[in-house]
Amino acid sequence: MPREVEPSLNEKQFVLQALQENLRLDGREIDQYRPLELTFGDQYGVADVTLGKTRVLAKASAEVTVPYTDRPLDGIFTIATELSPMTSPAFELNRPTETEVLLSRLLEKTVRRSNALDTESLCLIAGQKCWSVRVDVHVLSHDGNLIDAACFAVVAALRHFRKPDTSMEGGVLTVYTPAEREPVPLSWLHSPFCITWSFFGDQGEIALLDATWVEEQIRVASCTISLNRHGEICQIAKLGGTPVDAVALLQCSGVALTKAKEFSTYLDGKLAEDTKKRNKGGLLAELSAENDR
């Protein structure tokens, strides 16, 4: 099995020593993210996120299917992650590595299990028809901090996504094409974001946000905290590694909250911008069949 090239001993020591002196290779502050950029595609539900050299593309799609028999009132929501050899030679198709399993579990817990998407709203006819919403996450380039970028992309894609409008009349379900009726957004409850801390040093005393790939390879532990801007933690995962002081972890969660608020504001801004761009003639409000709640 191909392996990732490890940084050399010199490189490791150089990075570590710089960190001891509060310096990072790219000159960032320890709690500073690389420039985050989000672009939406022409279609609804495509989000392309770049975080420094890390680039993740998420695409949301929906189709009508039969709900699971044990949950007749819920729609289906799946997140599919695939790390292809395009990203790094260490990834192989159809052979989930530890990175991939942990990434998909984190996204699952952050977005799906925290009920960010109201799956009950995806139900069309109880036990017979429902929407199946699927997000495919493609990692195009991996330069560290995949988790945060992927989570941001998933949330952005889902919030940008519009599913075809439907109506029920006398037991007959009609799905309208975009030409007939303007597609409607998903029923979105809250936007969680992942913030990953990386720890360095023998005691894990140096904590960094948004580690690059080199930093990730030499870190001794990491902790991913997912929260939304209301200060609700959706998930925390510090899966082993060098022990870190409990007080330090609490401080990390405090900083994570401010970062999540920043992300949230940025995403809201981008979404508003995109709506304005699409709403050229100002006709959208009229086309929409949705009521303001």
């Binding site: 902790c223 200060g231 609700e232 933690i233 998930q235 995962a237 510090k238 022990p243 972890l249």
Partner: peptide
């Protein structure tokens, strides 16, 4: 010192 910390449910910070 915390080796592992896993939270899987929604909770106020």
């Amino acid at each position: 010192r915390v080796v592992a910390l896993v939270c899987e449910s929604r909770v106020q910070i």
